[in-house]
Design a protein around this nucleic acid. Structure first.
Lengths: 203, 203
DNA sequence: GTCTATAATGCGATAGAC
DNA sequence: GTCTATCGCATTATAGAC
């Protein structure tokens, strides 16, 4: 290991500048031009290194894609953790979904449809993510004595997770119909289960 | 034109056997292996012709992809039209969404994210599709005197359209959490607005 | 309308120098 | 750890025979 003092805390060279740059460049190209455009030569150029280095860090391109999924999954789970300590975790989760880079995840899902390694990675992530979502929603509903048989928390959490992502995707395609109504509808339901009376326009 | 008597009714050679086979082969490869695998050579091989013929019918690969989108869009709009004459059009639309090839549309959307020609094509289709969905839902709600301000038809129609597609996609990725509950939830709402009392388990 | 042949480019991956 | 150089193959697209 040729770690300088500054790098010493990084885990076994997994965070060398070039490696991190390659993963980030790959995500960026996938987002901008699609997963098919993320070739070893293109990501190397964007990261400012030569393409042979891609194969030094990631023997196959699949290894690189898996690392992109892992990295972005951890980023999102971290954002989710932060949302839990929000005053209104339900609203915070909804906001995460909206800000979420839905378009990158669409690329990742399309990729996962045809690559086993990525499929397992994304499935594991989705399970962890939905775990947290469901428990937050369950808590919110319970504290309002909602009828959870008629309105299962996991369903509300799926709608809260999926609808805003779909709106983002559609907007990029030039589709806008129903978006305003869908957003208003979900927010109205969130308010119903998580509105701190003393905090709205009347502090 | 060298049309045989049988082919005479087809519009200006746009439906030659080879051309149709190429479009179908492309859709199949996109579904099975992703849009990146749909190369001129691969689709030609699958259609049983030589790759130069692909470029005879479709000067660029984008032209071919656009034709796939057009063809599948027309197929789905036709299925939708048939659903309208169903005894329970709301349930029929829900069924279409479920049977819908969500995975192919995911590929098409990923492709559309980065290719302008395909983007316009899919936007036009989505608008026509959602048009019909919305009016069917509006009719169903109105005939039950539902509160449409609190429950906008376009939102219900989005949920009815998106949720089952998402379930299909996730299932293929190995995610199952919440699927049964989501399905049951939507069906319960459909039944509420479109249940012919005399037809259920008591004919 | 369909083919053979080919040009020009880009790809993933590896060997080996430094 | 990063580079140069290269192998072998696939890609889109075109030219031109039939």
């Amino acid at each position: 290991m040729s770690s300088s003092p500054v790098e010493e805390r990084s885990r076994a060279g997994r965070e060398s500048a070039a490696r991190v740059a390659l993963v980030e460049a790959t995500a960026q190209i996938m987002l901008d031009e699609g997963y098919a455009a993320a070739t070893s030569r293109r990501v190397a150029a964007k990261a400012g290194v030569k393409s042979a280095l891609v194969h030094y860090y990631f023997p196959t391109m699949d290894d690189l894609f898996v690392e992109v999924v892992r990295t972005r999954a951890e980023m999102n789970l971290q954002r989710q953790r932060e949302a839990l300590s929000d005053d209104e975790p339900l609203h915070a989760l909804w906001r995460i979904s909206s800000e979420h880079d839905a378009r990158l995840w669409m690329e990742i899902m399309a990729l996962a449809n045809h690559r086993k390694a990525i499929r397992s990675e994304i499935a594991a992530y989705a399970d962890r993510f939905r775990d947290v979502e469901e428990s937050v929603v369950t808590l919110a509903l319970r504290s309002h004595g909602a009828d959870m048989a008629a309105f299962p928390p996991v369903v509300l959490s799926m709608i809260v997770a999926i609808l805003p992502r779909m709106v983002v995707l559609e907007q990029h395609l030039g589709i806008t119909r129903g978006h305003a109504e869908a957003t208003a509808f979900v927010e109205q339901y969130l308010d119903r289960f998580e509105l701190r009376k003393e905090s709205r326009s009347d502090p």
